[in-house]
Computed example of a mutant assay.
Amino acid sequence: MRDNERINRIAALITQIWEQQHDKSFLQLIETLKSDYIMQQAGYVEKEVFIKDDEFEMFLKEHLNDLIGEKEHD
């Protein structure tokens, strides 16, 4: 059985990332995150990829930390 709390954790991470990049539309943000994740994993963007929630959650945490780090250096 899947961890039901993953939905809230992943949604919270996406919300925090979106707050850092509020100039993007929601779907633009999601597509960018998906493409960046696939590129990081495969080295190129595939159209059909199975993304595991736990791996994507870790990617989102890293992405958010990078964004926050960039903001602190500005």
Rank of each mutant, 00 (worst) to 15 (best):
Q28C: 07
M1C: 03
K24W: 08
F26S: 09
K34T: 08
F26P: 03
M58G: 12
K71I: 08
Q41A: 03
E62C: 10
T15A: 14
A11T: 07
E62V: 11
M39A: 11
F56E: 00
Q28H: 08
Y44V: 07
I68P: 01
I38E: 05
L29R: 03
L64W: 01
A42M: 15
E62T: 13
Q41C: 02
R9T: 08
D66I: 08
T15S: 15
I68S: 06
L33Y: 07
M58C: 13
S35R: 06
H63W: 02
L60N: 02
T32I: 02
K34L: 08
E70V: 07
N8E: 10
K61E: 15
D53I: 07
E55L: 14
E72T: 06
G43A: 03
H22N: 08
G69L: 04
I17M: 01
E5K: 14
E70H: 05
Y37T: 03
I7M: 09
L33C: 10
I30E: 03
K47A: 02
M58R: 14
I10E: 13
D66N: 11
L29P: 03
E55S: 15
N65Y: 03
F59M: 07
F50G: 09
R9I: 09
A11G: 08
R9F: 07
Y44H: 13
F26E: 13
M58H: 15
N4D: 11
V45L: 15
E57R: 05
E31I: 06
F59W: 06
V45N: 12
K47P: 01
L67E: 02
E19F: 10
D36H: 05
H63R: 06
F56N: 01
H22R: 04
